[in-house]
Nucleic acid binder design. Structure first.
Lengths: 314, 314
DNA sequence: AACTCGCCTGTTCACGTTAACAGGCATGCT
DNA sequence: AGCATGCCTGTTAACGTGAACAGGCGAGTT
């Protein structure tokens, strides 16, 4: 019992005893048994993160920020990834974390389908969604719509008549929001709204989408929904000998570390993934500490980074 | 007790009772208490992964593969990242995982300093190193030296007189090995060995390194130690109006998803990160199941992917 | 009928920790 | 002296599970 008091920094232990206990602990290589502690306190001091493909820059950055912030406050992070993006897969990942008795779960699940799954998730555990659209749980998200509007307005302000769009997959909230923001900006400026082309976030899909847009030479500016597709688009334009930014301006989204070194360096919208991760943890901890599940929504604005892929039309 | 038997699939329970128990379990929403189980069995069915910056493509891919394979065999994955690359930081991350009573740890720690740290890690827990150089624990690694040799020989076989090298940071095993492979190939072919330039893996450092190499116009081929630096190098060459591959050939390393869409598409060495992750888990599980800590080393060969950034010198 | 055997179910206890309570002892007050 | 008080340390029980053992009961054997 006295050992327990020393470990938990309780004041009712004399200095002498405390020192003796600590000495014995180091001597014996004693380590408190987390299982026994969890059994009696009912708290595991572990949080779960369920996420889609963590090789993507965004999710990976958030996960990293979450883990660091969690360790600082004495929590461990357990992960569960989604092999495929559907409700069942989400349910299994969620269940795997529940089975470990995590005290709360952060869901990095930017799909409409996983948001639906979140609606059916157990209500007796703290949950926070990241980029979770209109999920019935507290949410942290970057203001995608605003970012897309900024991107589009940046291109319009340079003098482009209108702006094309290579969109992300339609079952992603981020893709939907960026599409809306682009649409908003063009509508507000009373410009023609070109038909959009849809990709799947991959460089390859950006490449293919751009090849389709090459057939419309009147288009002098394209807002690409993420940087990876933008690199594919740059490739396609380069192959078609269409100079960027001389003949076509390009704006991306994300500001991945490579973006600055594309040919040409990419104008894009920076998302503070680390901040998103930290905020989501803070929001989760509120619930873990006892606050009721709210529908609070923290929105983080993106930032336009102007580089060399945009300029006035020729 | 009978419930315990049903949960653990023991055969000595009648069909009728089993069904009744299962029915009651679903009705009550019963979930076994992992803490109690861990307390009595002494096993947590949790593994730890300590890793440097998991936003890098390689570590992220391995982590993902490890998590999937682990969940398949009923193990949870807890993560601990290194805020900085030194022994203390490694020790803290390792200790955080130990404190959670993980049954084994995979260390994705490609630095010489963390390998040193591994030497002083507790011996009473299963450990596997990934890219851990000559760590005193079982190791899984890609044959970096072979890959670098293949890259260099590919360039020599195209007719280049010699091959320059933009190396990675000297405290990384991978950088050292790639440098050796490059050196080996040039030595074997009896070619002049140009002075290398060192970067830090980032696109920016590749950019700066390439700018230095521009001062040596006789160099017609460069082996860049990773794809991110390669994109920076391509950028620098593009700015200097040095055509790739017409005037200079470039080979990268990693085959990140973007590599195919660089300008020009990058010839590079593909590392099967997923395979590395799975193998490291398998090796760890051997120890967890009771095998003694060996110094077994699993080496996975990289694969040359020829694209458009290499050709014969002009 | 008495016994053995196999099949199934139940009982007891231990795992390591912490909450709650008990109690020893020195100090200071009446 | 007697007593209350505060400070510290010790005791007991409980958390939920599974190992080990106990035992009931029906079927088959002698």
């Amino acid at each position: 019992m006295t050992v327990s008091r020393v470990i938990n920094d309780q004041p009712t232990v004399s200095q002498v005893t405390r020192q003796r206990v600590l000495a014995a602990m180091t001597e014996l290589g004693y380590r408190p048994n987390v299982a026994a502690r969890a059994l009696v306190t009912g708290r595991t001091r572990t949080l779960g993160v369920v996420s889609i493909d963590t090789t993507l820059y965004g999710p990976a950055s958030m996960l990293l920020a979450i883990e660091r912030a969690a360790r600082d406050i004495g929590y461990a992070i357990s992960i569960a990834s989604l092999p495929s993006v559907d409700r069942r897969s989400f349910g299994e990942a969620f269940e795997a974390l529940m089975a470990q008795a995590v005290e709360g779960i952060i869901a990095i699940t930017p799909h409409t389908s996983t948001t639906t799954a979140l609606r059916h998730a157990p209500k007796d555990i703290p949950v926070v969604a990241v980029e979770g659209g209109r999920a019935p749980v507290p949410t942290v998200a970057v203001d995608q719509r605003l970012g897309a509007r900024i991107a589009t307005e940046h291109l319009l302000s340079l003098g482009h008549a209108t702006v094309g769009h290579i969109a992300g997959p339609s079952d992603w909230h981020e893709a939907q929001e960026r599409e809306r923001g682009w649409h908003d900006a063009l509508t507000d400026a009373e410009r023609e709204i070109p038909e959009l082309v849809r990709g799947d976030w991959s460089p390859r899909s950006g490449y293919e989408a751009a090849r389709k847009l090459i057939g419309r030479p009147e288009l002098t500016a394209i807002f690409v929904a993420n940087d990876q597709m933008a690199i594919g688009a740059l490739r396609a334009l380069s192959e078609a000998a269409i100079a960027v930014p001389e003949r076509v301006s390009i704006v991306g989204f994300d500001d991945i570390p490579e973006a600055e070194f594309f040919t040409p360096p990419l104008t894009t919208l920076r998302q503070e993934f680390g901040e998103v991760g930290r905020q989501s943890l803070a929001l989760l901890m509120e619930q873990v500490e006892g606050a009721p599940r709210s529908r609070r929504r923290i929105v983080i604005p993106p930032e336009l980074i102007v580089r060399e892929s945009t300029r006035a039309p020729y």
